[in-house]
């Protein structure tokens, strides 16, 4: 016999507490938005351009000496970071003034300074043009993904469902973007992927709940809307929690054992999926109450819009 995580007759009143929950989530979203606009992102090489080298040396590296050595040969800020072990160092150099050639020239100087004994595990130089393209494509990808999902849900359900789901998704995306801002995580192309994963995952949860609402709307034509929405959320709650748990379990596997690069990639996804699960349950469905889902006379009597 399997385990029952959520009692099968669960009847949590998500709709009743919606104003309270909306308030909290709205506050979190506003904090994130504030951080994004006031503090801004810690842009990585993909979006800012510049150089990145991951080196492995024979002996443990004297970071401060290496930093002063390198600052002498290139312009702008040089940041060094131990990467996994004392012999591994990640070197980041700000974008050099000038065009693409300037970046490559700086790379040559750095390699000359480091000498032949180091093992170059990774070398990246990104010029200004590519970084502009990457930013543009990243924004396009997120916006078009939202639009496409809105259209699909509109087509499969009703426009109200589409609007509510996009509001929920925008909230989730904001949380992940805020995470990058607040904790100064490096914002690279993989950050855009993390946002998109969050969005696609959250829509999955939302659609499952909407699907149940659609089914119940046909089944219980007389049930008050707020009860119907609550019932649908509770009926799918077990599935929502179970699926999120399995996905989070495999992501934790990646985070703990996947090495520094994969770990940096999976952390924002973990946060995003948590946010997506919470918002699918507490926002996407209760939000429908504010939309005219049924002809007016059938709306729930507690709904303010009904006279």
């Amino acid at each position: 016999m399997g385990l029952q995580l959520i009692p099968y007759n669960a009847n949590y009143d998500f709709v009743g507490k919606k104003n309270f929950i909306f308030g909290i989530l709205m506050a979190v979203a506003i904090v994130c938005l504030g951080y994004i606009f006031i503090v801004g992102f810690n842009y990585g090489i993909d979006f800012k351009g510049g150089l990145l080298l991951e080196i492995r040396t024979q002996q443990a590296v004297d970071i401060s000496k290496l930093r002063s050595d390198l600052s002498g040969v290139v312009e702008g800020e040089v940041t060094l970071q131990e990467f996994g072990s004392p012999n591994d160092v990640l070197i980041r150099v700000e974008r050099q003034p000038g065009g693409e050639e300037a970046q490559l020239a700086a790379l040559g100087k750095i390699k000359e300074k480091l000498g032949a004994s180091v093992d170059y595990r990774r070398v990246e130089t990104v010029g200004p043009k590519v970084s502009e393209d990457l930013i543009r494509n990243g924004i396009f990808a997120i916006v078009w993904a939202l639009v496409a999902m809105l259209v699909y849900i509109w087509f499969r359900f009703e426009w109200q469902f589409g609007v509510c789901s996009v509001i929920t998704l925008a909230h989730d995306a904001l949380i992940v973007l805020g995470l990058f801002c607040i904790f100064r995580l490096e914002f690279n192309e993989t950050a855009i992927i993390a946002v998109l994963i969050t969005v696609t995952y959250s829509i999955n949860d939302t659609v499952v709940i909407y699907d149940r609402i659609r089914e119940n709307l046909r089944k219980f034509k007389k049930m008050p809307l707020r009860d119907l929405i609550n019932k649908s959320i509770n009926e799918t709650l077990s599935r929502t929690i179970l699926t999120s748990t399995t996905t989070l379990l495999s992501l934790f596997g990646l985070y703990l054992f996947g090495g520094p690069v994969i770990a940096a990639f999976s952390l924002p996804i973990i946060v995003g999926i948590l946010a997506g699960t919470v918002s699918s349950i507490t926002v996407s469905a209760p939000l429908l109450l504010h939309m005219h889902l049924r002809p007016d006379q059938m709306q729930n009597s507690t709904d303010a819009e009904v006279l």
């Binding site: 990457l134 494509n137 990243g138 396009f140 990808a141 078009w144 993904a145 496409a148 999902m149 699909y152 849900i153 192309e189 855009i192 992927i193 998109l196 969005v199 696609t200 995952y201 829509i203 999955n204 659609v207």
Partner: peptide, 14 residues
């Protein structure tokens, strides 16, 4: 819906 999102990721991504 998930496939739509991932498809756009493929289209715009490098």
């Amino acid at each position: 819906t998930t496939l739509i999102g991932v498809g756009l990721l493929y289209y715009f991504g490098a």
